[in-house]
Write a protein that binds this DNA or RNA. Structure first.
Lengths: 135, 135
DNA sequence: CTTGACTCCGTACTTCAGTACGGACTGAAG
DNA sequence: CTTCAGTCCGTACTGAAGTACGGAGTCAAG
């Protein structure tokens, strides 16, 4: 496993972050993860910050952000170009709020559906469809 | 455009639902949309229910559901197999609530980020990463 | 009854997000 | 010093979700 005080090997990193080694290399190619320096030889070492970064990517993906958008979100990290960062954050905030609205509608409909599952037998119109339809 | 009282042509349907004609045919192949009967000739006609269905698919996709999952959600529509439907709905409800949690965290972080954009200049750690990291 | 827009259907291509593969290399353990 | 799991890198493949294309058929209007 090659896990020493110098940091995690790519294998250990992948395991820690819950992704495949190839995925890490893929993210590096995409610029989502920095290509780490190789202070101690030709094998790359990774740290906790890298693990957090991958977990962030995965979380953001589950929320429907594309890798490209996530790349944008991650540039907010550096603190520089504050004006652009703010704009990006505002756009994303709008996205997130729209998603929240949809999900809340979805939640209430699903909850209702579960609740009165037995009561409604021959209902023809789908309450789920109706819920998202009412936009 | 061939839009008559008999219903919408596939082109009009696509326009009404905000998707490409090819997408409609694709959904039909996938079984997400019923292949309509051809009561009046060889050209298929569509109605409002179809439009609602496509809009539902698009909404659900924005929430991160795959077409396969959406297929599952759409089977809840028919009201039959109530036990299975209930189980499916419950699983989806869990999914939706997990997504809501993530998004709410994301929202607060983004909102905060926008707010104190000017204040935090040289902050090194990314509050966004921290927010989703804290799971 | 011809024309031209639209439809039908199959097949092929594209993008996104990985996953797999294979040959060369590295480096800790025996 | 050898060995062999693990790494490196490029290239190729996969699956999901469409999108594009081309030839044949249809149908409302002129």
């Amino acid at each position: 496993m090659l896990a020493t005080a110098r940091g995690l090997s790519i294998g250990a990193f992948g395991a820690a972050a819950g992704v495949n080694v190839e995925t890490i290399r893929f993210y590096q190619r995409k610029g989502l993860l920095p290509e780490p320096g190789r202070a101690y030889g030709t094998i790359r070492r990774y740290g906790e910050a890298d693990v957090a970064r991958v977990r962030f990517i995965k979380s953001a993906q589950r929320l429907g952000f594309s890798l490209e958008e996530i790349g944008g979100l991650l540039t907010l990290e550096d603190g520089r170009h504050c004006a652009e960062a703010r704009t990006l954050a505002e756009q994303k905030l709008d996205d997130v709020r729209a998603k929240l609205d949809d999900l809340r509608r979805m939640e209430s409909v699903l909850a209702e559906l579960v609740e009165r599952c037995d009561a409604s037998r021959g209902t023809v119109t789908c309450p789920l469809i109706a819920a998202l339809h009412a936009h």
